[in-house]
Simulated scan of single mutants.
Amino acid sequence: MKTLDHILSWGLIDSLASDSNDSVPDRIVDMVRAELHKCGKPQKIMAGADVYCGMLQFEGSPRTRSLTQLMVLLCHRYPRVRKTTADKLYEALLTYDDAVPEENSAEVMAILSDTIWDTQELAEIREKRNTLCDLLGIKRPTVIKKS
């Protein structure tokens, strides 16, 4: 995960960002999602959040899917994961400012910076996360009930 994050942050695959038909960015999102599925290691999950944030440089499906996964991580059971994800997403949105509709940018940044992601009640955090989803124009994640 860390190597992939470095590759993305160093711009080694920037040529893929211009080709919206390339499936490599989508496959990266799929691989990270599969790797983090049912993962109980906070360090690994936070490294995955770094990769998702790096994927925001790609337009279209990779960006939307990465934002969706980041929204899931904002309501993770580990408070440390929630806080770190919010911090990293804030930085990524500063870097890739076209990822947020311009009219919603200030409100998105305010929610990310003003919310206390690691100590607030999960119900309050979900409300903030859902507001972020609406502002970013992505579908709200739903809680999957165990049967």
Rank of each mutant, 00 (worst) to 15 (best):
V100R: 03
A99M: 04
P79G: 09
L36T: 06
E91W: 03
H76I: 03
G60N: 06
D118F: 03
V29H: 07
R80I: 09
T119I: 10
S9N: 10
D50G: 13
H76A: 11
L136P: 05
L4P: 01
L94C: 10
Y78I: 05
D134H: 12
S113L: 14
V51Q: 03
M109P: 11
L36R: 05
W10C: 10
S147D: 11
S113Y: 03
E59Y: 01
T85S: 06
R65I: 00
T85M: 12
R63K: 15
P101W: 04
S66G: 13
A110W: 10
L136D: 03
H76T: 02
Q57A: 09
K2C: 07
A34R: 14
L136H: 13
N130Q: 08
P101D: 04
R82S: 05
C39Q: 14
D26K: 15
S61Q: 10
E124I: 08
S9T: 10
G60K: 03
I138V: 15
R33I: 05
L67G: 00
E121C: 12
V81W: 01
L56I: 05
S147G: 13
I144M: 09
A110G: 05
K41R: 15
I7L: 13
D134S: 15
E91H: 08
G54D: 04
A110Q: 13
I138N: 07
L56H: 03
Y52D: 04
P141V: 05
R129P: 02
M1C: 12
A123I: 08
G48V: 03
L56G: 06
A110P: 06
L136C: 12
